[in-house]
């Protein structure tokens, strides 16, 4: 599994597409309405948005990955790093921020490669 991290708009999806030769139909785009991820897709983009949906439902997003480790061995997971701002006043956003941290740690621990994008430039950090 490959994990691609970085802040918003840093070029994570563009990098995934070009580095791993992805077509649009290889990619599952999560939104905050995503209740379940299509694990048959090779690339799962913006898993942080899926996490926001789970947190709003009172669930732990990392559990969906821990209990159902159905990620393809060649999966590419894209996660926006939301960890570096001010602690949100809103309790749901606060829970989301912490849940994403746990989820990213879990994913990074399983990943064969971890990349971080900065201004469109990829850096391999694992």
């Amino acid at each position: 599994m490959i994990l691609i991290l970085g802040g918003s708009y840093q070029g994570k999806l563009d990098f995934a597409k070009s580095a791993y030769d992805l077509e649009d139909n290889d990619i599952f785009i999560c939104t905050d309405e995503t209740e379940a991820i299509d694990l048959s897709k090779r690339c799962i983009a913006y898993i942080d948005r899926f996490a926001l949906n789970r947190v709003r439902a009172g669930l732990e997003p990392a559990d969906a990955l821990r209990d159902n480790p159905g990620l393809r061995p060649d999966a590419i997971v894209i996660a926006t790093d939301i960890s570096s701002g001010v602690v949100p006043v809103d309790a749901t956003l606060r829970a989301w921020r912490e849940a994403c941290g746990r989820m990213n740690n879990l994913l990074a621990g399983r990943a064969d490669e971890v990349w971080r994008l900065f201004c469109g430039i990829p850096q391999r950090i694992r």
Partner: peptide, 9 residues
């Protein structure tokens, strides 16, 4: 400035 990594909507 890197203003891309906070948990805000």
């Amino acid at each position: 400035d890197s203003i891309y990594s906070d948990a805000m909507l």
